[in-house]
Design a binder for these strands. Structure first.
Length: 265
DNA sequence: CTCAGTGTTCAGTG
DNA sequence: TCACTGAACACTGA
């Protein structure tokens, strides 16, 4: 579930469970793919006994700020998630790391598909991949004039540019489609072809969509019924919006785009 | 059995 | 050098 709103929901959850608490015990698995450049032994040693001061996030990356560096950095890939529970038997399937806290709770990072990554870094925000990100789509969206300047240099389809994390950090496939749907812009439009009014609309919808999704804890049942989100899944040729407009599915920028030709120009 | 998929990276092309 | 495209990655679930 991991675009910015889902990762922010995880950040809030972890902050609630871990903040100002000590990590008493750490369990690891041997997964050389998800463990990116760090051994289970080093990761456990870095975490055990540490106090969590706060939990940080930029784009789709999340990290724990401990009372001593280095810090663990998590990327969720397609299927990464955190779970909080009380007993070992409740450990989620595909768990990669479990921390037990001074409150007795357990926190695990799990990832079925293994596109997720766990790193150990001295200064996460100053090192790749986080240092290469653009503005954060929740707290860092620039003024319309500056955003227009960024887009003016790009001739790729706006859908592809929205997914470019070096520009819009945190935007993923469903957020990008939702923004273009609500702003009434075709995903095929070269980014540089957007008018100033369209850039303003795109910016306003991005801010509103991300803010709402975060406010409801990324619980999609609480997204407005008019959102494309509820109807975009599965390449269903008969899919329609809440106003009975036909939804088209096609590959743009290497991803499935769901959009409404009758409404997006 | 086949295919799509909430993401990123890398090789190849122009 | 840079922007862009498409394949590859690993695995589940429909």
């Amino acid at each position: 579930m991991p675009e910015l709103p889902e990762v922010e929901a995880a950040r809030v959850l972890l902050q609630r469970v871990l903040r100002r608490r000590r990590i008493l015990a750490v369990e690891t698995t041997a997964d050389p793919i998800v463990y990116a450049g760090v051994t289970p032994r080093r990761l456990a040693a870095a975490l055990r006994g540490r106090r969590v001061e706060r939990v940080g996030r930029k784009g789709k990356h999340l990290w724990l700020e401990l009372d001593r560096r280095p810090w663990p950095v998590f990327h969720f890939g397609m299927t990464g998630r955190f779970r909080v529970y009380a007993r070992e038997e409740e450990r989620p399937r595909f768990w990669k790391l479990e921390m037990r806290t001074s409150s007795g709770k357990r926190v695990a990072f799990a990832d079925a598909r293994r596109f997720g990554r766990i790193r150990l870094q001295q200064h996460p925000e100053k090192e790749p991949p986080i240092s290469a990100l653009g503005f954060d789509a929740l707290v860092g969206v620039p003024p319309a004039a500056e955003l227009a300047r960024l887009l003016a240099r790009r001739k790729a389809p706006i859908k592809a540019v929205l997914l470019d994390q070096t520009v819009f950090a945190g935007v993923g496939n469903w957020v990008a489609d939702e923004v273009l749907f609500q702003a009434r812009i075709s995903p095929h439009r070269p980014a540089a072809s957007l008018t100033p009014a369209e850039v303003r609309a795109l910016r306003a919808r991005l801010i509103a969509i991300v803010a709402h999704a975060v406010k409801v804890g990324a619980d999609s049942d609480r997204f407005p019924r008019t959102w494309l989100f509820h109807r975009r899944w599965g390449r269903d040729a008969s899919a329609v919006t809440s106003r009975a407009e036909r939804i088209r599915h096609e590959t743009i920028g290497g991803r499935t785009a769901a959009w409404v030709p009758g409404r997006q120009r």
